[in-house]
Amino acid sequence: MRRLLRDNGLVLFFATIFLLALLGQAVAGFHAFNDDQVAGGAAPVSWTTYLTSSDLGTDVAENWQSEYLQFALYILATVHLVQRGSPESKPVGEEGIESEQDQRIGAHAGHDSPAAARASGPRLWWYSNSLGLTMGVIFFGSWTAQAVAGHAAYNAQQLLDFQDPLGFGEYLAGPDFWDRTLQNWQSEFLAILSMALLSIYLRQRGSPESKPVGASHSATGVEG
């Protein structure tokens, strides 16, 4: 049991604080939703009604999509772009998808390589891009969920305000959808930019996300 906790500490730690934060968001969102209901002259809703409404789903999905977009873009952009001095970057001059030897694929696969690394054609292509593709699929899935749930939640509020509901296309072209989308994107892009740039000059002893404390500022692609 102790070994299981130690071997998986990173995932279990983040899974725990994720579930606690999601629960906290649901509780706070429930009270905020009912405050709006009362202010709009409607009756407060039950906990079950809130959990099965589209309000919570929209708020959750809009944050998820931006996080998965952040990782998908970071994974793909760092294939082709480098940042001198950053531990998040490959060394300057190694831009691109690299050779089969560097990537240990095909004839260069080792005895412990995944079976797909020894394959060729579409199977190798899929496995070679599976991390970025999966992040991208979850991004588009979350963005779709945000759009569908956001449309339903927006129209529920419109009816509460005695306003006409919008069609799905009108909602997608409207300010609510893009305000929710872009307010999340801008913060993710700033966070990536900050990580790539601050890690050139700053250190965190013991973290693989940082260069070793004694590494030079010009060292690129060196992790601690």
Binding site: L4, V11, G57, A145, V148, A149, H151
Partner: peptide, 30 residues
């Protein structure tokens, strides 16, 4: 690596089920 594979599958399942739940509720409330 069986525990890691179980956690991997659990994460993808959780995200998939949660997003499906949100989409279905959104479609029902249109």
């Amino acid at each position: 690596m069986r525990t890691q594979l179980a956690l991997f599958v659990a994460l993808l399942t959780f995200v998939g089920v949660a997003l499906t739940y949100v989409v279905v509720l959104g479609l029902l409330h249109r």
